[in-house]
Design a protein around this nucleic acid. Structure first.
Length: 492
RNA sequence: GGCGCCGUACCCAAGUGGUAAGGGAGCAGUCUGCAAAACUGCGAUGCAGCGGUUCGAACCCGCUCGGCGCCUCCA
């Protein structure tokens, strides 16, 4: 029984979808005017995992995630670079897919763009005008917050409080300082669509109402996004949507916490952000491994709390994953002992129960990871006692299937995918300080040759030569492990 | 001024009334030609501080200290 912290009610609520076995969820995507940073990665990943867990739990999930592709910042960026808004948005939508793809974030069922839903946006605005919840001034249309008594329910704010703290210059024409634009008259050179109020473009909040209603209906299950969207974005979405439809909007509101640098929010203005592509470029590991490290790191803290990004945190995630992949390597070897096979079933049951309980508890990924660590420990012990080849495959399969929910443990081999090509000099030694310079990296074939040579040396009892080879490999970042049967395995 | 979050071992991090998960790092041991991995053991008499409620509190209440976020575009 899944429980989710619901911002709307301020507590954990038992999740019950409106339609049995079908979940409809909407998540606010990104405004495509720049590259995504780790904070965007966290948000995308949190809802990717929620979606995966709902599917794992047997629900069909209709997942809608939008692109905001008309916005002041996009216009500004386009003007700075002397290109069209489409050029900007296309570039960063592609970059989004590249980056999120490397992170293993699955695409949503529908990924609508604001610019492709003008008809719905205009219709919704019209409805709000007709119902007297909005007013028109010189080609602009504003939502009239004073006419919507429930305003502030989500963010637990009162209009009076907001007024007292308002720091922005207030447009004198507005009825109330908190009234927000549904439709903005376009200035010359700006993107523009014809409307009953003249040429213009939608306000920021209305697109999400229009697109969520379009694809999920007037009432749906889950609406998600970063904490910073609670006010004003989501508050305004509720006002517009409920105002227009007179129906409930989203039932559960889920918000993820921020990624921080040294306890401060990662943000453009502070200049303390890392883009996703920057992390991948600086990593000494292959994209597949780097992606898994980032996922492990981002999921090692509960989604609701803050998460501090650092080199050390990434290293710890890497070390923790090494333990799993070391075990997977042992499991890949054949054996016909069956002594511990019955115990394996017990260990698997325990892990699955723990995993499910953790995820049901407001998607507690750190506790879910702890359950997987528990199974790692159990299986390591059982392998020592003796597991059949079939049981070894089963154990690996359990890690793979539970790992699917979090996007972990899907790689065949952890160590064969190390990046060989050299990195640009200015990228070395930052996010992932390389243990070995690119020049000293060896190919798997070269390593296999060295390992074979060392085994020959060992057979001759030439331990001096064997140790030399081991040291040589070590300097290239290769660790050789001798097995009891005289053969060896290696890893990076 | 209003609203809200956080403070758990060297580091990261679960736990929100029943006597401190897990990971990383470290130390010791078993195993090993040596290593690595794995396993075993050690490690917070205490959960920012001070009071209070309770048979019992990291968890509830109050106050204090410290850090942060939102109220303006922001995942």
């Amino acid at each position: 029984m899944l429980k989710l912290f619901n911002t709307l009610t301020g507590r954990q609520d038992v999740f019950e979808p409106i339609e049995p076995k079908h979940v409809r969820m909407y998540v606010c995507g990104v405004t495509v005017y720049d590259y995504c940073h780790i904070g965007h990665a966290r948000s995308a990943l949190v809802f990717d995992v929620l979606r995966r867990y709902l599917e794992y739990s047997g629900y069909a999930v209709t997942f809608v995630k939008n692109f905001t592709d008309v916005d002041d910042k996009i216009i500004k960026r386009a003007n700075e670079q002397g290109v069209s808004c489409e050029t900007v948005t296309q570039k960063f939508i592609q970059a989004y897919y590249d980056d999120m793809g490397k992170l293993g974030v699955r695409q949503a069922s529908v990924e609508p763009k604001a610019t492709e839903h003008m008809a719905e946006t205009i219709e919704l605005t019209n409805t709000l005008l007709r119902k007297g919840l909005a007013y028109q001034i010189e080609g602009d249309v504003y939502f009239d917050v004073a006419r919507y008594p429930e305003y502030g329910t989500l963010s637990k704010r009162k209009l009076e409080d907001l007024q007292a703290g308002a720091r922005v210059e207030v447009d004198e024409r507005k009825h109330h300082p908190m009234d927000f634009a549904l439709w903005k008259k376009s200035k010359p050179g700006e993107p523009s669509w014809s409307s009953p109020w003249g040429p213009g473009r939608p306000g920021w909040h209305i697109e999400c109402s229009a697109m969520s209603i379009r694809y999920l209906g007037e009432t749906f299950d889950i609406h998600g996004g970063g904490m910073d969207l609670i006010f004003p974005h989501h508050e305004n979405e509720i006002a517009q949507s409920c105002g227009a439809t007179s129906q409930h909007f989203a039932k559960y509101w889920v918000h993820n916490g921020f990624v921080q640098i040294n306890k401060e929010k990662m943000s453009k203005s502070l200049g303390n952000f890392f883009t996703i592509r920057e992390i991948f470029a600086k990593s000494e590991w292959s994209d597949a491994i780097t992606g898994e490290i980032l996922r492990y790191f981002l999921l090692s803290t509960h989604y609701h709390g803050p998460l501090d990004f650092s080199d050390q945190a990434l290293k710890e995630a890497k070390s923790a994953l090494n333990g799993f992949y070391d075990l997977f390597g042992r499991l890949a070897e054949s054996e016909d002992k069956t002594i511990a096979d019955p115990d394996l079933d017990l260990a698997i049951d325990r892990c699955q129960a723990g995993f499910r309980a953790a995820m049901d508890d407001d998607m507690n990924t750190p506790a879910a990871i702890a359950a997987l660590q528990g199974l790692r420990n159990d299986v390591n012990k059982l392998v020592g006692v003796g597991l059949s080849t079939e049981s070894r495959k089963l154990a690996r399969q359990v890690f793979r299937s539970l790992g699917t929910v979090m996007g972990l443990f899907q790689l065949e081999r952890w160590d064969f995918n190390v990046r060989i090509e050299p990195k640009p000099a200015d990228l070395v030694g930052t996010a992932f300080p390389p243990a070995v310079t690119a020049a000293k990296q060896m190919t798997p074939e070269e390593i296999d040759g060295k390992v074979a040579e060392r085994i020959e040396a060992k057979k001759r009892k030439d331990f001096k030569r064997a140790d030399e080879i081991r040291a040589e490999l070590k300097s290239s970042g290769i660790t050789v492990e001798d097995k009891p049967d005289g053969t060896s395995r290696w890893k990076r």
